[in-house]
């Protein structure tokens, strides 16, 4: 299961690296919008965890990029932020994200949410195999 983590704070990035590699995920780390954009253009990820406010490309732009791109449409999007105002939450869900994690968070919360998402992904993939 490949995950792209875009987080501007170094400490959280490291923490997430530790948490998720222990769970067996295959991680790629990005620290700003430009790196995320480059990674997204190069390879396909199963899940992307990202901030909203990033340099170069905002989280919103990344979401529209993913949604409008044929190859990347199935990528699950998780937003990790400390900035969830009611308007933003509504906006994000309307844009089609799959989950939200609010800072401060517990590692267990992240593991559970991602676990659920990866279950969903495996189910979808199996269904795809069935129908194709």
């Amino acid at each position: 299961m490949k995950i792209l983590v875009t987080e501007k704070n170094e400490i959280i990035r490291n923490l997430i690296l530790h948490i998720l590699t222990k769970e067996g995920y295959d991680l790629k780390l990005a620290s700003n919008g430009k790196e995320a954009f480059t990674f997204l253009s190069e390879e396909k990820f199963d899940i992307i965890i990202s901030n909203i406010h990033l340099q170069y490309y905002s989280g919103f732009e990344l979401i529209t990029f993913i949604k409008s791109n044929e190859h990347l449409k199935d990528t699950k999007i998780v937003i990790l932020s400390d900035n969830f105002t009611p308007e933003n939450i509504l906006r994000l869900y309307k844009m089609g994200i799959d989950d939200m994690i609010e800072k401060p968070f517990t590692p267990m919360e992240m593991i559970c949410r991602l676990g659920k998402l990866s279950e969903l992904i495996t189910k979808e993939k199996n269904l795809g195999k069935f129908t194709s």
Binding site: G33, H53, L54, Q55, Y57, S58, E61, T85, E87, N88
Partner: peptide
């Protein structure tokens, strides 16, 4: 405009 839109502020 792109750079102004991605400024770090909630509102």
């Amino acid at each position: 405009v792109h750079s102004l839109l991605s400024i770090n502020y909630h509102k």
